[in-house]
């Protein structure tokens, strides 16, 4: 009898532990899933469903080093677009990227999706950080 109670309590604890995600991971999941939808409507036509880009015309989003090193420039890049040369995966890209009319929270969502897909693993890119980065756009 005692044995059964112990097992029962253990099971209950296990269920609690699994079902209760930390607030951080809930926030991440929310950012990521909203970002995934924004990616489909704003980015996927050019950058592709797997972030593969398009040969030498459109850069892929799979260069984890670029994403890591430019994490604070990415909000400006998404918002204002880009002209000029960009080196991704050791290849040069010179086509123009159009600007996107997105709110800071949407930029944070879509960047969280990109920075945690296609081989990238940078965690949540939160809206406060994106706001600061946007203030420092060149």
């Amino acid at each position: 009898m005692k044995f059964k109670v112990i097992i029962g309590v253990l099971c209950l604890l296990l269920i609690l532990a699994v079902s209760c995600q930390s607030p951080q991971s809930i926030e991440f999941a929310r950012y990521y899933s909203s970002g995934s939808l924004l990616y489909q409507s704003h980015c996927q036509n050019c950058h592709g469903a797997k972030g593969e880009g398009l040969n030498a015309l459109i850069p892929p989003l799979t260069d984890t080093v670029f994403i890591k090193n430019n994490i604070h420039q990415l909000p400006c890049l998404v918002k204002n677009g880009l002209r000029g040369k960009l080196t991704i995966n050791k290849k040069d890209f010179t086509e123009k990227m159009p600007s996107n009319d997105l709110a800071p929270i949407e930029i944070a969502n879509v960047l969280t999706y990109v920075a945690n897909s296609f081989g990238n693993k940078r965690g949540t890119i939160d809206v406060v950080q994106v706001g600061n980065d946007l203030n420092n756009c060149k």
């Binding site: 996927q44 036509n45 050019c46 592709g48 398009l54 015309l57 123009k96």
Partner: peptide
């Protein structure tokens, strides 16, 4: 060539 919207996905499929 300067089409930002549907052309890339068209050309990806045409490839």
């Amino acid at each position: 060539t300067s089409c930002p919207s549907i052309c890339p996905v068209m050309q990806r499929n045409m490839l």
